[in-house]
């Protein structure tokens, strides 16, 4: 799978470092992008976290095969993609996963948007800040991972159904807000 080329800036600045330091600094810079990429392929946060960890290990093991004329993120996402497929293969079938064909399509489609990851994150941050306190609190409770939706529902006295609906509406709202932000930024620059 071919992911698009990005600017050579990252690799240029790290070229003079010892190899392991170069790896650490590149991974530190791009981990959220890689994690985000994995997240589009695996719907469950815990799955995505596991695969991300595994991916980091593999990246380190294969670090000497990295050719520093290529893009680190393309290389890393390529490896991550195979880790996702591996993961799905060994998982039991009690959860729904996408077929390999769909995974490839989704991964390929992101190749063009990869370098935007940082902007996207910043836009999301801003949009979250625009939400009311209650919504932010709800997102925090539901997304933190320490409580199940059921527990949050019990605590807040709402039904799970209502919470899911509310979360869905919030995601849509944030998605619209992000796209407006990114769109106007493009126009402005």
């Amino acid at each position: 799978m071919e992911l698009s080329q990005e600017t050579q800036f990252d690799t240029d600045t790290t070229m003079n470092q010892p190899p392991h330091e170069q790896f650490v600094s590149l991974l530190a810079r791009h981990h959220s992008l890689i994690r985000g990429f994995i997240g589009t392929l695996l719907p469950h946060q815990t799955d995505a976290d596991d695969v991300f960890q595994q991916t980091c290990l593999v990246l380190w093991r294969k670090w000497d095969t990295f050719d520093d004329t290529q893009s680190f993120t393309s290389w890393a996402c390529g490896i991550a993609f195979y880790e996702v497929k591996n993961f799905q293969r060994v998982q039991s079938r009690d959860r729904h996963y996408f077929s390999d064909e769909i995974l490839s399509l989704i991964a390929a489609q992101q190749s063009t948007s990869l370098p935007e990851a940082e902007h996207r994150q910043r836009a999301l941050q801003n949009c979250i800040q625009k939400l009311d306190v209650e919504s932010r609190k709800l997102i925090q409770d539901c997304y933190q991972g320490s409580h199940s939706i059921k527990e949050v529902a019990e605590q807040t006295g709402r039904s799970c159904e209502a919470l899911y609906k509310k979360l869905s509406r919030l995601r849509l709202k944030l998605m619209d807000c992000m796209q407006q932000t990114l769109h106007s930024a493009e126009m402005g620059s």
């Binding site: 994690r35 985000g36 997240g39 999301l124 997304y143 933190q144 995601r171 992000m178």
Partner: peptide, 11 residues
């Protein structure tokens, strides 16, 4: 999904 993932890391 980006929103979904972004929210998880934000939280």
């Amino acid at each position: 999904m980006h929103v979904h993932n972004g929210l998880a890391s934000w939280a």
